Simulated scan of single mutants.
Amino acid sequence: MSAPDRPPLKSITPATDGPRAAVPTPPPAAVGEPKGAARKGDRTAVVPDPHPGDGRRPVAWLHIVAPRGAVPTATSRCACGRDRSAVGHAKVHALITEHNDHREHCPLRNPQEGRAAA
């Protein structure tokens, strides 16, 4: 049994007749140059934001992890700089209560005015 004929693994480049002059390349286009419709002065349509905001934004986050049969953990964070965490059933319940209480008294959610601010 003989192996099938295979082409050689490397190709040999034939020798050139001599040196050749380099072919000049066209000058590069300016960076950011408009193409197509923009060059002609056609305006593009400006569409409104499909998801307009209602002015609300998140300020406080409560993240609870309670896998079945494992010890629960919780993290309470606020944009005002408050960052607390708890491990265990009793401490997680206490942190949930603290988090809700902080939301009621956080200076970012309830700005103080007048004498109370000073």
Results as ranks from 00 to 15, higher is better:
1 M>I: 13
1 M>N: 10
2 S>L: 13
3 A>I: 14
5 D>T: 15
5 D>K: 09
6 R>W: 13
6 R>C: 14
6 R>T: 14
6 R>E: 14
8 P>I: 14
9 L>A: 15
12 I>R: 09
13 T>V: 14
14 P>Q: 12
15 A>R: 08
15 A>G: 08
15 A>P: 07
17 D>H: 08
19 P>M: 01
22 A>E: 14
22 A>H: 05
22 A>Y: 05
23 V>G: 02
25 T>K: 12
26 P>V: 05
26 P>A: 13
27 P>E: 09
28 P>E: 15
29 A>G: 13
31 V>S: 11
31 V>Q: 12
33 E>C: 09
34 P>R: 00
35 K>N: 09
36 G>W: 02
38 A>Q: 12
39 R>L: 15
40 K>F: 02
41 G>S: 00
42 D>A: 14
43 R>G: 09
43 R>E: 14
43 R>K: 11
44 T>S: 13
46 V>H: 06
46 V>K: 09
46 V>G: 08
47 V>I: 10
47 V>Y: 12
49 D>P: 04
49 D>Y: 01
50 P>I: 03
51 H>S: 07
52 P>D: 12
53 G>P: 04
53 G>K: 08
54 D>C: 02
56 R>N: 09
57 R>I: 10
57 R>C: 07
57 R>D: 05
58 P>Y: 06
58 P>W: 04
58 P>R: 06
61 W>T: 13
62 L>M: 12
64 I>C: 00
65 V>C: 08
65 V>Y: 10
66 A>L: 03
66 A>V: 02
66 A>H: 03
67 P>R: 07
68 R>H: 11
68 R>D: 14
68 R>F: 13
70 A>I: 06
70 A>P: 03
70 A>Y: 07
74 A>Q: 04
75 T>S: 05
75 T>A: 06
75 T>W: 03
77 R>E: 10
78 C>Q: 01
80 C>M: 02
80 C>H: 01
80 C>I: 07
80 C>D: 07
80 C>P: 04
81 G>P: 01
81 G>V: 06
81 G>Q: 06
82 R>K: 04
82 R>N: 04
82 R>C: 07
83 D>S: 05
83 D>W: 03
84 R>Q: 09
84 R>K: 08
84 R>L: 12
88 G>P: 04
88 G>Q: 02
90 A>T: 11
91 K>A: 15
91 K>S: 02
91 K>V: 01
91 K>T: 01
92 V>R: 00
92 V>L: 00
92 V>N: 00
93 H>S: 11
94 A>F: 00
95 L>A: 02
95 L>I: 00
96 I>F: 02
96 I>E: 07
97 T>D: 10
98 E>L: 12
98 E>Q: 13
99 H>K: 01
101 D>T: 12
103 R>E: 12
103 R>I: 11
103 R>Y: 02
104 E>K: 07
105 H>W: 01
106 C>N: 04
109 R>T: 06
109 R>H: 03
110 N>M: 03
110 N>S: 05
110 N>A: 05
112 Q>D: 05
112 Q>H: 01
112 Q>E: 11
113 E>P: 01
113 E>L: 08
116 A>M: 05
